[in-house]
Design a protein around this nucleic acid. Sequence first.
RNA 1: GGGCGGUUAGCUCAGCGGGAGAGCACUACGUUGACAUCGUAGGGGUCACUGGUUCAAUCCCAGUACCGCCCA
Length: 889
Amino acid sequence: MAMLDKTYRPAEVEPKHYERWEAQGAFAAHTDSNAVPYTIMMPPPNVTGSLHMGHALTFTLQDVLIRYRRMTGKDALWQPGTDHAGIATQMVVERQLEAQKVTRHDLGRDNFIKRVWEWKAESGGTITRQLRRLGASPDWAKERFTMDEGLSAAVRKVFVTLHRQGLIYRAKRLVNWDPKLHTAISDLEVEQREVKGHMWHFRYPVEGLENTYITVATTRPETMLGDSAVAVHPEDERYADLVGKMVRLPICNRLIPIVADEYSDPTKGTGAVKITPAHDFNDFQVGIRHDLPQLNIFDRDARTNDEVPEGYGGLDRYDARKKVVEQFEALGLLDKIEPHTHMVPYGDRSGVVIEPWLTDQWFVDAATLAKPAIEAVESGRTRFVPRHWENTYFEWMRNIQPWCISRQIWWGHQVPAWYGPDGAFFVEETEEEAKAAASKHYGHDVDLSRDTDVLDTWFSSALWPFSTLGWPEKTPELARYYPGDVLVTGFDIIFFWVARMMMMGIHFMGDVPFKDIYIHALVRDEKGQKMSKSKGNIIDPLDLIEKYGCDALRFTLSALAAQGRDVKLAESRVEGYRNFATKLWNAARFCQMNECRPVAGFDPGAVKETVNRWIVAKTAELAAKVGTAIEGYRYDAAAGGAYQFVWGTFCDWYLEFAKPIFNGADEGAKAEARATAAWVLDQILHVLHPLMPFITEELWGQIAERGGDLMLRFWPALDGLAAPEAEEEMDWVVRVISAVRGVRSEMNVPPSAQVDLLVSGLAEAKRGWARTHADLITRLARLTAFEAQSSSERVAQASSHGAAQMVVDEATLVMPLGGVIDVDKERARLDKEIARLEGEIAKVDKKLGNADFIARAPEEVVAEQRERRDDWAGAVAKLREALERLSGA
RNA sequence: GGGCGGUUAGCUCAGCGGGAGAGCACUACGUUGACAUCGUAGGGGUCACUGGUUCAAUCCCAGUACCGCCCA
């Protein structure tokens, strides 16, 4: 085996392994295997997308899960794919056309759609290529696209079925109309933004009463052109005698009624509110209650149509507003204008103000579908992690509104409905079936025209957990991998997507689409700000990968993914974990230099040396800890535990312990230490693999000849390796070394100074420990000699000439420093230590002196406190003796 | 207005009824044959505030303040 380079070079290593893994089919699920399946449905990124930090987080977390489960022997399916992202994709292609000064209308529908497919063929692979750079290991052979033939068939089937069940219907309703994109959008695609505007107070003359006016306040003066009524609260005495009278609407010169309706809030504005049923959601409801006409005054561009008085037609809504206000002022009917901050709806894609507009649209009866989806979470068949997201889910699902699923765009699944000459429609999966149905209906063949609308992108996404597995066909995949084990996603799409998958999954599959829903937080910048182009604080994951390596980024995201917290990403963290990768690399290099080669048939349970039994036990703990953490979605604990072990235990202590052995003469000990170190390193590579797939695979291959890739190996099953007595012994060694190092540093004993260490009062049982580890303690504490059992005369003599003394358990360590040491300083140090311990003792004494504590606290807690007090008291006594011995110096 | 989170070391965050923790940053020392992308040691906190429950509260409960997010 060639020697490892001095540093790890991720850029050279990553593509090499990824390509081999993929080519060898290492990511594939095995439908015909006997293993227990484990399924994650990848939230399909937009086909227009490119990898951002949110993707990096979510896909890293999913990849950690899938790699871990694959290693534990599950038949792991991570189902990948992309989403056609209707509006977003159409906008991208339209923007390209715009550069050529062409509109989609110039091309016509068919050509435009062809153009989008061409674009998809060219650029649609960006996001999946980038996912590969992240090390994601989904079953690429199963990659799907929401508009591919199979998924489109599923969409048609679902639409037709729900329509027959009365759960999809067509209706003329007020919808959120985007006047820029010329389509309806769903409530969820509307963003409410706080806007500083005005409140205009208009006086409407009451018909039949001289000089009597009712004043209405509005933030949208232009809509008065479509007013159908004025509403006051039924109990508002100010207006009681006006209810039932008519108002003559200025400008329009129409008569509209004054109605009593609880929608009017007497405490707001004037208490009288104008009602425009065709352009406001609340007013629409009032209109229904009072049977008011719905007067539509806008066209699809939100310009006034010809329903408005002469001179007002064809105006942009804001020009119309200006003109209406001017006219009111001219008429002396403008009472006042107040500054007013209110919420205004904006289209999340177009960024323009949404206009409530009366149109024919297709709706899903979401309330009906939501019921079993709510029940599934209530009963725990599907579980949110962290739990509190259930509240968010319930809140929305219990107040769910009809879902407007039709969009007046071209890119998407066209609604499978065909219209006859009289407007009757036929909802069928194919045109042939629609024709047949129409013939039956009319008694003869007729020409049909297909509905031009397409479906909301989220409609097809809602089917993702089963449509990707081949539904409506009864495929082996569908039987095997549905329901999924976990959905990993961000909270921002609980409504858009999670809720809808729950509804559709339960309705069509009769079972929930996944057992767990792991909701992770948003990635923010280090100051906690949302990353956005306008703020210029975007961190590109690919830049970080290039700079620090993919594993460093993955490890960082995992380490920061604590449940219930946003991920605040500081580049310094990535750098720190890159250093961790380097540390691991060099530990492996050290092992290699010392000929630590994996030994065939090595039995970790059979090692004899204490250090080895100790590290074997610690390694077993590590594997269990990391496995449990990943299973509990505690990525932070998994990463933290691995980091702590590799750096803080393996490198800082075990390898240091091993050095004297490697350099010693005991060949047996050397051989065992080498084999153990190699074994531990192998276990580390396994355990870190889900988090850091590349460096672990690389080391795996470089350290020894192997039978195959690390990624397809089994997770370490290390039972029965606990060694509490070895742990106790090595902990003692660590305490001794730490004590010496601490005192050396505090007393300014330079590393070069030659010092001995004497031991006094060491318990009989520990003398063997001291002898066994004398070399090791000597080396790590930088001593010249370590006297495990010193005579009291020697101790007394040494300390009377000046010595640093430290108490470890029942023993006192004495470091003779005659002539070097500042005795006053050492006294002060001992005094300080005594004072600290006495403070602790006082605290415990207070507790132990409390009769209630003794009576009520659990026995073991009381015993623990007593033990602790005894230990401290013993230490204080020894420190006093040490002071005493110093008195002669 | 309703709901949900958060407030612990300078920064980013763990912990969660019985001795305050990590990483980064900081200070001092250090090229000891894996690693300076490193080593050793150290300083730094009335765990937001006020009450309550408890033998015992950073941890549980209630309230307050401030910050963030979602919904209306």
